[in-house]
Design a protein around this nucleic acid. Structure first.
Lengths: 161, 161
DNA sequence: TATTGTTATACTCTATAACTATA
DNA sequence: TATAGTTATAGAGTATAACAATA
């Protein structure tokens, strides 16, 4: 933990100025590092998913529908931490793009089950393949073992258990 | 990597519904885990810093000023990834609360050096002490060694080198 | 000509209240 | 009475363009 040294100009009177900024304190905090890392990964994700016109949240929604056909909006909300009013527009947009369809829920007349269309299935396949390349790319600085460790430790942070 | 099984109701006709949601695919992605972990840490941070009326970004700004007296707005922006127009209001608010002061930059008439007031110094001391407790609390699920590893791996993700 | 700090402004994201229809 | 989905709306966060003062 090498403590960076602040380089300052100290002139005649008093008021110091800063040449090299000392970020060592912030970099010692978990929250700071977690946020920076998340933003860095998301930035790469945004670029790679641009051809599919998918934001991270759209990818998450489509992928959850793909792996859970018939999932409801409410279930998507609780799983992804999205508030219901904010999901409505996303689901509408995905339906308008003919990537998903709504079908009446078999046992709850209030709910609608969400399903991928054939187009949607193809898009998710392609997008998940791109995401796999991303994982390899972003984590190129890490060994496979380090990547596994990182994900395991991140889970420990946010998972209730 | 135990693949969770999706539990579905399969009834007479076709339309499936989902009881237990399979999130195993998303949880295998670095970006998803990084974002969830960052949000979890920030949530705890928000509560703990409420008594000081500091958001994470305010804490970062004050802490950087504390460790780099005379730092300019522009330097804060590049260090924290904030756009200049969005920093103006924050700095104004902190000045209004008499936590920081602006002093003319010794060698650049366009810039203003930022400094903590005596009040600001006390607040940063207290807030950093609280942040230290937080680190211990949030990372209670991790051993000290795991926490060091986690921060080291996160740095590898977002640092350019 | 380039940069610091600033204003105005727009766009996205997130949050709350309230409605409807079904349970 | 409670819940799924929805509407409207408000607030926070983030983005671009353009300006005055100084380099």
């Amino acid at each position: 933990m090498a403590q960076l040294r602040t380089h300052r100009h100290l002139n005649a009177g008093e008021t110091p100025s800063v040449d090299v900024i000392d970020t060592s304190y912030l970099e010692s905090l978990l929250g700071y590092n977690a946020r920076r890392a998340a933003l860095a990964v998301i930035e790469v994700f945004l670029e790679a998913m641009a051809p599919y016109q998918l934001r991270p949240v759209d990818f998450s929604v489509l992928s959850l529908i793909a792996h859970n056909p018939g999932i409801t909006s409410r279930q998507l909300c609780t799983t992804l931490g999205i508030l219901p009013p904010n999901l409505v527009g996303m689901v509408n947009a995905l339906e308008k793009r003919e990537l998903i369809s709504r079908q009446p829920h078999p046992r709850d007349g209030r709910a609608m089950g969400l399903h991928l269309t054939t187009q949607g299935e193809k898009l998710v396949r392609d997008a998940e393949a791109t995401a796999a390349e991303l994982e390899a790319g972003v984590a190129a600085r890490l060994t496979p073992s380090e990547l596994r460790t990182l994900i395991k430790l991140l889970k420990k942070i946010y998972q209730p258990g």
